[in-house]
């Protein structure tokens, strides 16, 4: 199992769109971290994550999202997650992370 990351910058919305497909765990989290670092270096704007095909994320992956949000918050930008699967929603709930990311849908 692996992770596919698709990214696109919407000029009009001034927003990154990122689709995560597969699993983010201790093996694939580095890949996600590198992607976020590059995105944020290029344009420090909101990152909207489509989690429709994100099957699994562990604490390592959540740590990467927290790290990216920290950088974005310096410019008052956000991370928005949408189409989140119930099992991942549960994880965001119990950790309280649903209060620091914007969860839609």
């Amino acid at each position: 199992m692996s992770l596919i990351i698709e990214k696109y910058y919407y000029e009009e919305k001034k927003q990154w769109s990122v689709s995560l497909i597969g699993e983010v765990d201790i093996y694939t989290a580095g890949q996600l971290k590198e992607t976020f670092i590059k995105l944020i270096e290029e344009k420090k704007e909101d990152i909207k994550i489509n989690a429709e095909e994100l099957d699994y994320i562990d604490s390592t992956g959540l740590g990467v999202l927290i790290g990216a949000l920290k950088r974005l918050k310096q410019e008052n930008k956000d991370i928005i997650l949408f189409n989140v699967k119930p099992s991942i929603k549960k994880l965001l709930n119990i950790t309280g992370l649903d209060k620091i990311f914007i969860i839609e849908g």
Partner: peptide, 24 residues
């Protein structure tokens, strides 16, 4: 105990694993 979400200001990320295990 609970994850310290104020760690947004700290360098270290994480500290979620054990809490998640205990919750689930």
């Amino acid at each position: 105990k609970n994850p310290d979400l104020d760690h947004l200001n700290h360098e270290k990320e994480g500290g979620l694993g054990i809490f998640i295990i205990r919750s689930l």
